[in-house]
Structure formats: structure tokens, C-alpha cells
Nucleic acid binder design. Structure first.
Lengths: 253, 253
DNA sequence: CGTTATTTTGACCCATGTCAATACGGGTGG
DNA sequence: CCACCCGTATTGACATGGGTCAAAATAACG
């Protein structure tokens, strides 16, 4: 289970060390100095249990992050797209497997090396902390989706938040390319393939989306999807709606 | 909604600054230098949306961490018991409300001040990172529980992991004091009160637990509960069991 | 084009949620 | 110390969302 590592596994390239402008050692700049590695679809970037010696920045493609439970079920913790980072949220070893959904291009950064040069640079620490908090927020959102939302809400939320990641403006037809399979989506949302399909079909019938092939979804009404999802995220709704709130005090008497 | 803060809100006591042994500025030591504050049951330590100026160490009692969704549902993200910390996992403002379940005693530490002195002390940074990772791991566990496990598994997992937190040895009768209500448990596990009750009753019928009053649970067979929960946590089971694994390749042919 | 994996749809069933009644427990005032 | 009360918990009857099983349709790939 710990076999089949990276296709290419070049030694860590020399960092330009302190040759970078010390005032802005942006992570991006550090990554840019690293060689690019490639992963074929289905290949693993790292396995759950591997030593977490590096973290990564995906420049192109899509990864799925998952754990396999003892009885074989698979829980997908998240997806990573081009421009995003993976591998920070663990101390000593990876807590999940990262596997290429599509062909992927990544650059890696040595954790220990970064740590060493980071000692001085509070700036870097700050960046890492921030990234970590973002992951934490994502985890919290996921917990809420899985713990409180019904199937329809979950799928709507999935589509809506995918749309956000593309920075698509809230205006008309957002074209999404979802590279993962229905099973991936199901394992991510804690549903079954069939349920995901049925709900996508329903959204289609209702004119909320259009499906083109297996991986292209056109959101005809992101607004409506967001409503179904119960607001993309927290805020903007200070008013309590309908009634599913057993913990609220009884109405005025 | 942003009202009713702490009962007592003393200014941040002077830190012994660098008077502490610089080689071991343990967080506990820092906390110990802070005055203790008290919270009555139901009182909030902080609210979702509050500026995250401090973090806290609970010396006694139990807190629930939750978010209220726009439609009034409540998602409990976790519970905090004596000896544990809260309030780290956010950058600028708290992502959930922390509310006392029982009477609580806490000490607070100024985030900015700690940050200032932390610049030099890589040791401290390291401690915070570690705590953060632990929270991350807890979040991941929670995601798996909510996404993949059935009601019975969820409750078993809840009991088993509560038992672990008390550091009770795996040997016979573990006596748990669960200060939260059934509703709290339900909102934490993504279930309803009724389901939680029914499953507890079933466990009782099956001789796995005994209930004493509303808050005391005696685990007669932690082992069995852990099995129901599908292993307390990941490992130790390299073998794949029964069949709920659609993503596994078809059996040999 | 044919072959195979993925997706979609349908029929059916079960685990949980919902609604409603009852029982318990823990505090209060007599 | 006992009787009463109210919030919490438990139990039951029933409804239903979503899972399961099975078949058909569609896409991807050689």
C-alpha cells in the first residue's frame, strides 16, 4: 500500500536560498524555483501514512484527497485544483492520500528546508498559518454540509462552491468543468452515485443546470443553487427562516 | 447577538515577558500566569464573528462549539473539556460560538502579545502548529464520521472517543460523565435526539452500556463499541472487510 | 465500430426523521 | 422530607429521504 510513488522523483533542487528578495519570500516565488513534476491520472502524489517531507503546489490538473476506512469505504476530504496547495495540514505524516484525477503538474517544496529558512522569516510563517486556517475553514464548511444538509442541499452546495473557486462572477451561465467522477462526488458528499445522479437530473429538469457530456455542467442559475444550498457560506442572513431549530427558545407567549 | 460577553473581563495581566526560562515557554506556564475567569452554564465565552483577540485554556468544565445556520439549524463542531484549549483555529475572527455547557473556568492569553513574543521563540510557534494540527485531525475524523458512518456507528464513535479523552485504560467499565444534553450530542453527530436516545437504549439492551441518570454512562464493553465504530481511528486494520466499497476494483477473475 | 466503464433511470426497502404521547429527574416551595 | 412542576429524555407509530439492487443508456477508448 506504500508502493508506487511518484513517477519522477528528482532530488530537491537547490533553493535560491536567500537570494530572493527577503522582504517578500512569497510562497509562489519559492515554488516557481522548483522543477515541475507530472502525474498521470490515477497516480498518487503521496499516500496516507507517508512522511510529510514536502508540500506541493498544483499548477495544473485536479487531485482528490481521501482516506480509506478499515471496511473499504472511501471518504474524500477534498479536491485540489490548479493554483492551490496541498500537504500542509499535517505535522509528521500525511493524513490522507492525494491522487491525480486528471493529468497533474506539481511543484514540491521541502518542508524541513522551508522550516529552517522560515525560522527567521516571520513573513513565511504567517503565510503558512493563513493557508492552514483556510484549510480549517474548508473543513468546518464540510462538517456542516455533511452533518446538517440533505442530499439536494449538498449537491447544490458542491456546485455553487465549485463555481466560486473558478472566480466566476455571479452573473449568468457559469460553465463548470468537473473532472472527477460521480463516485468521487458521492464519496465527497457522503452520498451514493445514484443519489448524485438523480439530483443532478432533477436540477436539469428544473432548468437550474445543463449537462454536457460527463464532466461539463452549466449553471443556469447560480443564485438559485446558492439558495438551495442555504447561502454559500454563513453570513448575510441574520434572519432565522423556517422551523428546523429545536434548540431555539419557544416562541413568545 | 454580539452582546453578553464575559462576566469578568480583566485587562491582560502583564506577562512575565522574557522572565520565563526561554528554553521552555510552555503554553501551560503562560496560561498559569493568567487570572482565572468563570462562566455560568449557557454563557458564551465568545461568539462567532467576534474578533479573535485571545485564545483560551479551559481548566474546568465543558464548552460546546457551534455555528447556527441561516435557517436556524445548529451544527456543533466539537466540545472542549478541562485541560484543553480553544480559539486557535481562526485567523482574524472566531468561526464558531463557544458556550459553557457546565460551569466553566478558563484562562485567556492575548493572541497579539503571544504573537509578538513568539516571533523569536520558534518553540512557541511549534507548539501552536501542533495544536492546530490536532484540531485539524479532529476535524477530519469528524468529517469521516458524518460523511460515512451510520447512526449507530456515530454514537459508538462518540462514546468511544469520549472514553479516550478521559485516558481511561481500555479495561473494563469506563465511567463517563457526559455533561451535554442529548440535543447537543445529536447536533454534534448530525442526528436527531430521538435517534440518539434509541441507539443508547439499544446499546443498553445489548449490555454494552449502562445509563445512570442523564449524564452518566458506563461503558461495559469499550472494545465492542470501538468495533461498532469501525476502529477508533484508522490503522491496525490493513484488511478490507465486507463489501461497502464501490471504488475497489472488481474481485479477481 | 465493438467493448467496457461510467452514468442514468426505475422499483423497492430500510434507516432515520417526524410527530406525538409518556416517563423521568432535578429543582422548588411547602 | 415530600409533593409538584418543568425541562429533558424515552418510547412508539408512522412518513420519507436516500440507499440498494437491477437494468438500460451513454461515453470513452481502442
Amino acid at each position: 500500500m506504500y508502493a508506487s510513488r511518484l513517477a519522477s522523483m528528482p532530488g530537491v533542487a537547490m533553493l535560491p536560498a536567500l537570494g530572493l528578495p527577503p522582504e517578500a519570500p512569497s510562497l509562489d516565488a519559492l515554488f516557481a524555483a522548483q522543477p515541475t513534476e507530472s502525474l498521470a491520472p490515477g497516480a498518487a502524489l503521496f499516500w496516507e501514512g507517508d512522511a510529510a517531507d514536502y508540500f506541493y503546489r498544483v499548477s495544473e490538473g485536479c487531485l482528490r484527497l481521501y482516506r480509506i476506512l478499515p471496511d473499504g469505504r472511501r471518504a474524500i476530504m477534498g479536491f485540489v485544483f490548479g493554483g492551490e496547495m496541498v500537504g500542509l495540514s499535517c505535522l509528521d505524516m500525511h493524513r490522507y492520500t492525494a491522487e491525480a484525477v486528471t493529468a497533474v503538474r506539481v511543484r514540491r517544496l521541502s518542508r524541513s528546508r522551508l522550516h529552517a529558512m522560515g525560522e527567521g522569516a516571520g513573513e513565511l510563517q504567517r503565510l503558512l498559518f493563513t493557508r492552514l486556517f483556510e484549510e480549517m475553514m474548508a473543513a468546518h464548511r464540510h462538517i456542516i454540509v455533511l452533518g446538517q444538509m440533505g442530499a439536494e442541499e449538498r449537491v447544490a452546495h458542491f456546485l455553487a462552491s465549485a463555481a466560486c473557486r473558478t472566480r466566476a462572477d455571479r452573473k449568468r451561465p457559469v460553465v463548470l468543468d468537473l473532472p472527477m467522477t460521480r463516485l468521487d462526488i458521492a464519496d465527497y458528499l457522503g452520498l451514493t452515485i445514484e443519489t448524485v445522479c438523480r439530483i443532478l437530473s432533477k436540477f436539469k429538469r428544473d432548468g437550474l443546470i445543463a449537462l454536457e457530456g460527463r464532466h461539463r455542467v452549466i449553471l443556469r442559475s447560480l443564485r438559485t443553487l446558492q439558495e438551495i444550498a442555504g447561502e454559500p457560506d454563513g453570513f448575510d442572513a441574520g434572519d432565522i427562516r423556517e422551523g428546523r431549530a429545536r434548540h431555539l427558545a419557544v416562541e413568545a407567549h
